[in-house]
């Protein structure tokens, strides 16, 4: 292995030398930590690897996804494997979208003081406070649009002084908006009818009949959709 440039970081208070130019997750694994929980897709989509860090000489805590953020010299790191945030249960078809339904399921939104800490904590750059405010006035469309990029990492809820369950309420709003207000998208209709016709049955049947070696071969030879390419 060629000589790598190294730098020092701190993980849970202990100093480690790690290579320059790697993500927080890679650096922690390099240092010997094994992610049993708190890691998932490793591509910035699943929201499992929410992380907290502080940079040398800065007063504020920063938030990011460990699989996306690059380490910097002198970073102090820790992992937050999970945000305990209870989710309200509901039957979508039984909800009345006209009433203050989000408030009924997530009454803590009425405690929002507009401190904007949620927005600052969001690794997806979502205007979280704005969608909480839209939720308070029952604007499902706005909540859905503003929260669309949410990956449910839970950092907003971790930081909220009002104990709001942001990502869960936004998910509920998007579901409600989808079934009650937004027009059903054409591509979804097409896809649903294709599935109903059973267009994948043949492929599935073929896969089910393969033995392990054949499956491995198939997997290795799979075509991965290139980034930016139209599917």
């Amino acid at each position: 292995m060629s000589e790598e440039k190294m730098m020092q970081i701190f993980i849970m208070g202990k100093a480690y030398d790690v290579p320059v130019g790697v993500t927080i997750m890679d650096a922690m694994e390099y240092a010997g930590y094994r992610f049993v929980r708190g890691a998932g897709c490793r591509s910035g989509f699943c929201g499992a690897c929410a992380t907290v860090y502080r940079k040398e000489g800065e007063y504020r805590l920063e938030f990011a996804l460990a699989c996306q953020e690059m380490v910097e010299e002198g970073m102090h790191l820790t992992q937050l494997p999970f945000t305990p945030a209870p989710r309200s249960s509901y039957v979508l078809s039984e909800l009345d979208a006209d009433e203050n339904v989000l408030l009924q399921h997530y009454p803590a939104i009425a405690r929002c003081v507009s401190c904007n800490t949620c927005t600052k904590a969001c690794p997806q750059d979502i205007e979280v406070m704005d969608y909480v405010q839209a939720a308070l006035r029952g604007d499902l469309k706005k909540v859905s649009e503003l929260s669309f990029d949410c990956i449910q990492c839970g950092l907003c809820s971790m930081r909220c002084p009002a104990d709001i369950k942001h990502s869960h309420l936004a998910q509920m709003a998007r579901r409600l908006y989808a079934v009650t207000q937004s027009p059903e998208p054409d591509h979804l209709k097409t896809r649903m009818s294709e599935l109903a016709e059973g267009i994948h049955e043949v492929q599935l049947d073929a896969l089910m009949k393969m033995n392990l070696d054949e499956l491995k071969k198939q997997y290795a030879a799979r075509v991965i959709e290139a980034e930016g390419e139209e599917s």
Binding site: N100, L103, Q104, P107, A110, R111, R137, G138
Partner: peptide, 19 residues
């Protein structure tokens, strides 16, 4: 607070009360 209770209340009352 039950969902039924909250359903009857306007948000203006809830925000004020919680504050």
């Amino acid at each position: 607070m039950s969902q039924q209770e909250i359903a009857k209340l306007p948000q203006i009352a809830l925000v004020a009360s919680f504050r």
